[in-house]
């Protein structure tokens, strides 16, 4: 699961519920089709000469030359790092230095200019003198609507975004719709920023191999159903497979996910603890690292009978960056879980 700020989604979901208090939460089921309207069309150019990048919001960024100093939000920074592009500055929504996803990378010389959502040290960012700032943007609905009037992901508000724009042009990768589109958009940007084509090709081969392994694991164990969720005291939030790029992509490779109600509200299916039994069809549970883990799930009496929990098949799940290598590793991990899983549900 991408770090999609479940709380923000929850808050939104809750306010929606409150707004329509009298109505049952049963919105019109919109089609899960993705209109990836604005794929990044990064123009790969030589280091010399003008450089341009049309980001996923359709914003064309034009520079006199290929930017060599890029600042990025943590998720996009991870992707760039995997392609050998070292950002000059990174801002995250959790502490970057202790974020395990950065463990494989050398961050010396990189300015860490933010360790919590929206808290970007603008002076430090300006001091790193980036030529381009890259972050993500999440759609607000299943149709992929991008609210470009609001701040991009990781940015506090429109005002702060204006401040960022004063430092360098800001572009965003759309984190929604088809996972493969997100990976390709991210990769296209990296290539445009000078990522080595051969290395990218190697990464892609590794990705495809992992995808195949994942598909094979899923095919060998067709009865293993994977539930991806976030849980806290309020209940269980089961990810809708088509609405999260990562699950959308893995489902395409053959993973059998719990997807009990693909229509209705965007992104989550919400189950109160009383209704927990209604979503217990999974054999493997991937629990978002930010919410309840196996130990806390076990304390909920109405969840105690969950077959995956009883079989010890609840695992912490952290969102991976949307580059070939990170995704390959994530898929290997999932393939292993599926291979080792017992069919318990």
């Amino acid at each position: 699961m991408k770090i999609r700020s479940p709380r923000r989604a929850l808050t939104a979901a809750l306010s929606a519920i409150v707004a329509t208090a009298a109505l049952t939460a049963c919105g019109a089921a919109s089609s899960s089709d993705d209109d990836s309207a604005s794929d990044a069309s990064a123009t790969s150019s030589a280091s010399a000469g003008p450089w341009s990048w049309t980001d996923d919001t359709g914003n064309a960024i034009e520079l006199d030359s290929q930017p060599t100093r890029v600042a990025a939000y943590a998720d996009q920074a991870l992707a760039l790092l995997s392609y050998g592009i070292k950002p000059v500055a990174i801002f995250g929504r959790v502490d970057v230095a202790s974020d395990p996803r950065f463990a494989d990378y050398d961050l010396s010389g990189v300015a860490i200019v933010g360790n919590s959502y929206g808290e970007i040290d603008l002076e430090a960012l300006a001091a790193a003198s980036p030529q381009l700032i890259v972050t993500g943007i999440y759609p607000t609905d299943r149709k992929g609507t991008l609210d470009t009037s609001g701040p991009y992901y990781g940015v506090a508000d429109a005002e702060q975004q204006k401040q960022l724009e004063k430092i360098a042009p800001v572009g965003a990768i759309k984190i929604g719709g088809e996972g493969l589109d997100v990976v390709e958009s991210t990769t296209a940007l990296a290539e445009s920023l000078g990522a080595d084509k051969d290395d990218v090709a190697d990464d892609k081969a590794e990705f495809e191999e992992a995808a195949q392994e994942l598909g094979e694991a899923a095919k060998e164990h067709p009865d293993i159903e994977v539930t991806q969720l976030y849980a806290d005291a309020d209940g269980l939030y089961v990810v809708k497979i088509a609405d999260e790029p990562e699950t959308q992509m893995y489902a395409g490779f053959g993973v059998n996910y719990t997807d009990l109600n693909p229509g209705g509200d965007y992104y989550w299916d919400i189950y109160s603890w009383e209704n927990a039994a209604k979503m217990m069809s999974g054999d493997v549970i991937l629990a978002n690292v930010e919410g309840y883990q196996a130990k806390q799930l076990a304390k909920q009496p109405t969840f105690a009978d969950d077959p995956a929990l009883k079989a010890g098949q609840v695992y912490s799940w952290n969102g991976a960056a949307m580059d070939y290598t990170s995704q390959a590793k994530q898929m290997e991990k999932l393939a292993d879980l599926i291979d080792d899983a017992k069919d318990v549900a």
Partner: peptide, 22 residues
């Protein structure tokens, strides 16, 4: 406001709820 992780933990607690309590 300056720490999203705290906000996340606090949000659950600050909206008074009887859910999930034993």
């Amino acid at each position: 406001l300056t720490d999203e992780a705290t906000l996340a933990g606090y949000r659950i607690w600050v909206v008074g709820s009887l859910s999930g309590r034993t």
